[in-house]
Design a protein around this nucleic acid. Structure first.
Lengths: 247, 247
DNA sequence: CGCTATCTTGACGCGAGTCAATAGTGGTGG
DNA sequence: CCACCACTATTGACTCGCGTCAAGATAGCG
């Protein structure tokens, strides 16, 4: 469904707390997360079932095929969602950034490994508890549906990208997506961060590490981007990049 | 969310009516559709806002970029969902078969053209009406969420396929998916139907028509399938195909 | 300061796209 | 009913972009 965004009944952006995570009420990223639609009173209900989980870089949160017991909201840091086929081919389904909800799946088991790209803090909720919350707060379920629909849209974008764009175009698309995402999350700025290694970008875009590297240097040579460091990128010619992506 | 399937409160499979579509209560494919979760009484509410729409083969239901006013459930026939990029590259996002819900999107405009592959009958509901129904019947919204989650899962499967599998593997995957789908829909049988032309298969799998043709003949030569007619395929070696797809 | 993992760059080959010709199929009208 | 025509599918020959393999350059870390 279209599900034009529900108005968040809680308009205070939850920035009053200094700490990274108190109880949910003071959560720094609630406005980015699905729980943003809950009233302060409703947030309390969520508080009783949510718990904070901290991961170090490289830590594995879940393995493909394991029983799904929890869903997560990323509070800080970043995750990668990785599929491995029987013969070892690797596909990075996506990256989860602060505010992202991890667990929109219809399967009983995890469809991918979930790994931390850096020090990461998560809000964890039992799957059953989350389902009960969905029944209790229909507008929360509505928000989840809205998220799922948005993710479906971007999934279709990515299919177009994987099926019909060449490596350079895919890189441009990826970088612009990342930039837009960091802008939304309140981290604008000329230079954007690439929290993942080249291999993850490659497996996300259906390329090889070598090709990713070559594409980045190509974009740099053409003056579209700068690479101040390995994990940081600067967009010099936004219009030029967009022209590539749209193709 | 996982959303293990809600139990349909309406267990009568709605096969009592002879006609292809009376009012919703007698709908032949209700058990396949999202409205399968509604009680007979609730179905009446849906009846008042739903209307039957018939398309001839090749008819265009909607164009990419148009305002989204309706959502649809396919009753009979088949649709294709097509994206065209600015420079004419084509991607078939998916095919909608009987029971499928068309309209799980977060965008205000259609993200793709919607075209009939054959004579097709649809159940049409206004977007606003559908949203009201979702609020009125939370279990309907739950079912939509479940659908969206399942579609997300298959979208991720398809990304893996597009990014990491070779043409033959993609064909095998596609054929198996189609076979499974027709089995679910109650059309089993050794021979399955390909309601779409080769060009659509190609644009669905990120290939060219020529490559699709070559892959099909390759699979036939290897004794995995037979091609009794252009729009019909028979799976001769299920295990062999699965071995390819899993790779 | 050196070790290791990651990233970059280069040389080469292959698989899928492109272009082109042939075969099949369905639909229409004589 | 058959002949013709347009469209789609198949097959073949060739090209080229991206993957593969291999060698250096960087960078992060102890």
């Amino acid at each position: 469904m279209s599900w034009p965004p529900f108005d968040s009944p809680c308009l205070t952006p939850a920035t009053e707390s200094p700490g990274p995570l108190g109880p949910c009420l003071h959560c720094q990223i609630r406005h980015l997360a699905v729980c943003g639609v809950l009233t302060p009173a409703e947030v309390q209900a969520m508080d009783t079932v949510a718990s904070l989980q901290v991961l170090e870089a490289g830590a594995v949160l879940a393995r493909q095929g394991e029983q799904r017991r929890y869903v997560y909201t990323v509070v800080q840091g970043a995750l990668r969602l990785v599929r491995l086929s029987a013969d070892g081919r690797r596909q990075v389904s996506g990256f989860a950034m602060p505010g992202d909800f991890v667990g929109l799946s219809g399967a009983a088991t995890y469809p991918h490994d979930i790994e931390a790209l850096a020090h990461t803090e998560l809000c964890r909720i039992g799957l059953d508890a989350m389902q009960r919350l969905g029944v209790q707060f229909p507008h929360l379920q509505g928000k989840l549906l809205e998220r799922a629909c948005t993710e479906l849209d971007t999934a279709h974008d990515r299919m177009m990208s994987l099926a019909r764009m060449n490596p350079t175009e895919r890189m441009a698309d990826f970088l612009l997506r990342l930039a837009a995402q960091q802008e939304r999350a309140g981290t604008p700025g000329p230079s954007i961060s690439l929290p993942m290694p080249r291999a993850d970008i490659a497996d996300h875009l259906g390329l090889t590490v070598e090709t990713v590297s070559r594409c980045l240097t190509a974009l740099r040579t053409r003056g579209l981007i700068a690479l101040p460091s390995t994990y940081r990128i600067e967009i010099l010619d936004l219009a030029g990049l967009k022209a590539l992506e749209a193709a």
